[in-house]
């Protein structure tokens, strides 16, 4: 356990957070006088899949970036595991490194290539390990980014609208792939998205971020193989859309 900002080392928190992957208390963030996060309290348990919904500009990506340790200006206390990985909306593969080198970027050299190959096999990109990122399709690049995240065996997987730029068919396949991989690796997941259906399909718990605060948690209690046609699914979608301020047509 480390703090995201490496400034706050509260020992009392360590005992309380043995089962937690994320512990956020009164997390704030201000951009040029505008408060984007105003006192976020959030616990994410180990192995739990949490989806965070919010309108564009609501600060959901800001919260994720703070958890990733990419934002030193965050206020409050935010504890996250040391091993964490991020998948962004754009794949962010280094264009001058072949796919396998991208996947194992930053790993200790020992055994890295074998682990990288295994991760690529998991996302179905074995044949592309020597490809340049520029030659991949959008879905392939995003799968490579997923492999780069998983090869680190993260305790916390941060997904920042990872399927937002993909076409609808590819997105469906990515949902299935992500579900499989999470079932195997069991990381804690924070999925930031604006797609309500995606959130309900994937998450154990769905949260809505409005005006810098997180609304009441909604546990997704649907039978295995969640279907959009399930009346409970529709009810939950309606509730969430209402909370997001969108009337369902």
């Amino acid at each position: 356990m480390t703090t995201a900002s490496d400034t706050d080392k509260d020992t009392a928190a360590h005992t309380a957070t043995a089962e937690l992957a994320v512990s956020a208390r009164k997390v704030t963030r201000t951009f040029a006088g505008r408060e984007v996060l105003s006192g976020i309290d959030l616990d994410i348990f180990r192995g739990e899949f949490v989806a965070l919904l919010g309108r564009s500009g609501s600060g959901k990506s800001t919260l994720l970036r703070a958890m990733a340790g990419l934002d030193p200006e965050t206020g409050g206390r935010l504890l996250v595991p040391r091993r964490r990985a991020v998948v962004f909306q754009d794949h962010r593969l280094q264009p001058w490194k072949r796919v396998l080198e991208n996947v194992i970027l930053g790993l200790p050299r020992q055994g890295a290539r074998d682990r990288g190959r295994a991760a690529l096999a998991e996302v179905g990109l074995t044949d592309h390990e020597r490809a340049w990122p520029g030659t991949l399709s959008g879905g392939e690049a995003q799968r490579a980014a997923l492999a780069r995240a998983l090869v680190r065996e993260p305790e916390l997987l941060l997904l920042d609208e990872p399927f937002g730029a993909l076409d609808a068919l590819t997105r469906l396949r990515m949902h299935a792939l992500l579900r499989e991989l999470c079932a195997v690796h069991r990381p804690a997941v924070l999925l930031v998205t604006h797609d309500v259906d995606e959130a309900i399909l994937l998450a154990d718990r769905v949260l809505v971020l409005t005006d810098g605060r997180i609304g009441p948690p909604r546990t997704v209690d649907l039978p295995e193989g969640r279907r959009r046609t399930d009346p409970d699914f529709a009810r939950l979608r309606g509730d969430l859309l209402a909370e997001l301020g969108v009337a369902e047509g």
Binding site: A68, G69, L70, V86, F88, D90, R92, Q94, L105, G106
Partner: peptide, 21 residues
């Protein structure tokens, strides 16, 4: 800077960022 960020989240230190990114 997005590539720098992605390198950083992959665990690259300052030297690694210079060399790989």
């Amino acid at each position: 800077h997005r590539l720098v960020e992605s390198g950083r989240t992959a665990g690259l230190g300052r030297l690694g960022l210079v060399r790989h990114v």
